[in-house]
Each structure stands twice: as structure tokens, then as C-alpha cells.
Amino acid sequence: MSLFKEFLKGIWEKNPVLVLSLGLCPTLATSGSMKNAVGMGLSVIAVLTFSNIIISLIKSFVPSKIRIPCYIIVIAFLVTVVDMLIAGFAPELSKAIGLFIKLIVVNCIILGRAEAFAAKNNPLRAALDGLGMGIGFLIAISIIATVREVLGANKWFGLTVVPGWDPIGIMILPAGALLTFGLVMAVRNVLAQRRAK
């Protein structure tokens, strides 16, 4: 598989959220507003890329029986770094999504890619895979957040879309998250089927 394809697969063909159904907890929790979703997506890209690189580097001397605890340490380390950096240099963002950043540790995309890809490939491929998957995550969560914020709060990035319109409040609630997620996934499946024909 060419390097470019390795990067590209996370965006469409194996999109972590919409195809692999990984990392749904942060997707549902932070997609209520674009600001949170983009912050979350960018943090995931950073953590995922670096965790993939590090794990690919240390794969040869980590015994397979204790690989999961090793990966978790690496991931937890990176997440804590990101958390501290955001808290230090972007306090407003930290106020909004600080709680969710800590949850990246248990985001299954990260451990999933470590186990399924980084542990079997060289650091360059692992980095590209992590970057692609991270961007795929960002795109998916942004689509869901756009639908939810525009319909549910009549806003996008906190800016009013249609002045004076009563938004559909349920879209901003957890029920709306599941609903939007299902519908976006369905649309992707339809498009994928069309392309396959």
C-alpha cells in the first residue's frame, strides 16, 4: 500500500468514527458545539500521531504479553502532556473541554490503532496512519457537531445562523447526538455503496 493511501484510508475508507465505530464516547460528548469538537479533534490528532510513532519505535522490545500496559503508559503520558499544555497556554479551551481531554486515554481509536497498526508497521507508516485517522476523526466529529449545533442551538462556532429561529433543542441533548451519528453514518454508507457500483 502506498504511503499516501496509508494516510488517506483513515479519512474515508476506514474512518474511525463512521466506519470502525471507534471513539464514540468523545464523539457523542463533545459534538454539542463546534468549538469543543474542533478542540477535541485537534487534541486527538496530536495524541494519536505521537502515540503511533512512539509505539512503533518501541514495538521490538516490548514483550507481547505486557504490550497493553506499555501502550497505556505511552498514551496516558501523551494525553497528560496535551492536557497540561492546553491548561497552560489555552485556558479558555481547557475550561470547555478539559474534562474530555483526560478521556482521550481511554479513547478506543488510540489504543485500537496502536494495537492494530502501529505495533506492526514502521514509524513513518504509523505516523501517517495516526495523522490520517486523526483527521478522519476531526472531520467526522465536525460534521456531527455542525449538524447538532446549527439545528440544536441555531449557532455555528457560537455565532447565530438564522436570527430569530427557534432551534430544535433535542439535537443538542445526548439523544440528538445518537440520532445525528446514526444518520451521518447512514449517509456515508449510501455514498460508499454508490461509489462501489
Binding site: G32, N36, K95, A96, L99, K155, G169, L173
Partner: peptide, 9 residues
């Protein structure tokens, strides 16, 4: 000072 309530509500 601190809150993390439902965005939009």
C-alpha cells in the same frame, strides 16, 4: 467560575 452544562441550554 466553573460549569460544564449542556451547550446551548
Amino acid at each position: 467560575l466553573e460549569q460544564a452544562e449542556t451547550p446551548g441550554l
